[in-house]
């Protein structure tokens, strides 16, 4: 008997011109799991996430959310599935022309037609959850530090209380202390919402903190998938090289463009 997974990715292939980025990516994420996909730069982590979100169309393979197909689905069905998802983008992707609270409330006001007066208290509550007060709410994103922008982006991702949360390199560009603060906030938010989470990162400290399971992506394939507690004795030479940050090993760094 096959159980319905929260997210199911099967044999996904994606190329850009002659460059093959995903080469048969397959994994399942059960409800309530926090999966972190690790891997070097350019291994296809972001592309995997964008394919799951339906922002990119794979050439081959299937992606399902709650048993419903995202790949090949009509636009309305993709939009309905996306309503279950909150996403924290690598650079925050906050809207420059809107204030902080308008950014956080966006999924409610524009996405779900909620009145601004109703949405503002929700936005302030979510901002408080990530440690930001009302004074910040009236500022514009350009007036915030990188760490504060990440917090606002996290508040925006959780504003509509989604079932699924995606985090794209949540700690990139942050100092170690702020990175740890963001990791704690992510772990707490996922727990509070009871959400299923998929994160991509090459920051092992972040992975250890927010993952229940880890998958390693290399050359467009998942080469290892297991519980976070097994990461240091995975028996996989790719994982060992990546976790210990060694230059020598089976992963060869590409020094010039293909």
């Amino acid at each position: 008997m096959s159980t319905i997974q929260k997210i199911r990715v099967q044999d996904v292939h994606k190329s850009f011109g002659k460059k093959r980025v995903l080469n048969g990516v397959t994994f399942d994420v059960p409800a309530g799991e926090s999966l972190v996909i690790i891997g070097g730069s350019g291994t296809g982590k972001s592309v995997t996430l964008k394919c799951i979100l339906g922002l990119m169309k794979p050439e081959q393979g299937t992606i399902e959310i709650d048993g419903e197909a995202m790949t090949g689905a009509p636009k309305a069905q993709r939009a309905a599935l996306r309503r279950k998802i909150g996403m924290l983008f690598q650079g925050g992707a906050l809207f420059d022309s809107l204030t902080v609270w308008e950014n956080v409330a966006f999924a409610l006001t524009e996405g779900r037609g909620k009145a601004r007066a109703e949405a503002k208290p929700v936005a302030l509550e979510k901002l408080a959850m990530v440690g930001l007060d009302e004074q910040v709410a009236a500022l514009y994103p350009s007036e915030l530090s990188g760490g504060m922008q990440k917090r606002v982006a996290l508040a925006r991702a959780i504003a509509a209380s989604p079932d699924i949360l995606f985090f794209d390199e949540p700690t990139t560009g942050l100092d170690p202390i702020m990175a740890d603060v963001i990791n704690d906030l992510i772990a707490a938010s996922v727990k509070r919402l009871g959400a299923t989470a998929v994160s991509i990162t090459h920051d092992m400290a972040s992975a250890r903190k927010i993952a229940t399971n880890i998958a390693m992506l290399h050359e467009g394939r998942i080469v290892w998938h297991g519980p976070v507690g097994d990461i240091d004795h995975s028996g996989n030479e790719y994982v060992d090289q990546f976790v210990h940050g060694r230059a020598e090993g089976p992963i060869k760094m590409q020094v010039r463009a293909l």
Binding site: G54, R82, M87, A93, D96, G111, R156
Partner: peptide, 21 residues
């Protein structure tokens, strides 16, 4: 700039059609 900084992708994930918005 919105495309490059993923703000257009963000609109999609916030249940808002960038074409309409």
């Amino acid at each position: 700039t919105m495309r490059v900084t993923e703000q257009i992708d963000a609109l999609d994930t916030l249940a808002t059609d960038p074409m309409k918005y």
